[in-house]
Amino acid sequence: MSDVTLSVRGLRKVIGRRVIIKDLSFELTRGEVFGFLGPNGAGKTTTIRMLVGLIKPTAGTIRICGLDIARQFTKAMSRMGCIVENPELYPFLSGMDNLRHFAVMLRGITRERIDEVVRLVGLEERIGDKVGTYSLGMRQRLGIAQALLGKPDVLILDEPTNGLDPSGIREMRAFIRSLAEKEGLTVLVSSHLLHEIQLMCDRVAIMAKGEIIRVDTVQELLASEERMVWRLRPLPLGRLILSDLTEVLSADEVTVTTVYSERHAGEWSRRLIEAGVSVMEMNRKLPALEDLFLELTGGESID
């Protein structure tokens, strides 16, 4: 079997006359964390809902481990776990009853497996309590436990860090990385935060208006869009020197912004100092999602 666990071809959704999703195609492989990045309304959630079988695509095929979800729905679904938007579970049942409820819908889930996933997400102490009393973070973890019950090959998480506190976000990121690296899962996460995706994913697809406008590794994507902000004294001289060396993208009264280059940054600062310019600050700046979009869509705004 090939390493491709999730393959999407020509995926399209039309509602009425509006084309919501325009011919998406991508492939994910084993052990990869893939990010879906886009502003709200870009079509991330619609795409994810099509991947998990909640929405029927107008055209195109989705295969999970080679199984077409339109033709072999139950077989394909047994290879996949997911959380779509919030991890909504039954608040009037205990965490354990919730897991049992979903375990019944899979085949051959033993008691030991349930205990195992509970341990994996660290919910041993509260698993007997009603889910209604859980914090959002705990619910998120229970949701993950539920998604992992059937030992899926593909895990699909929609905005997995939404509503978590900073330590919860860090934990979640580490957990997702370890699932991919140690267990060889393919994880697809969506987010509207570039920062989030950057720290978690190997590859990322950028979506806007129902289209994937770029798929690339995180390094590549960021490298081409990263900026360097210089605070120099005297500024005019510094700016002159920099513009000789590289392209100055913008400048104001306090700073000069150039492209970032891992290879040349040291050289540029040496040249500045040699010319008698004090380098007060060199700041490598990640592009904001908005900037990235403007860049990629050629000035088209997000909204």
Binding site: V52, G53, L54, A76, C82, V84, E85, E88, Y90, G150
Partner: peptide
Amino acid sequence: SMGTIKLLLTRPVS
């Protein structure tokens, strides 16, 4: 309304 239908219908059960 609880949103649990999303989990219910993404399990390997028709």
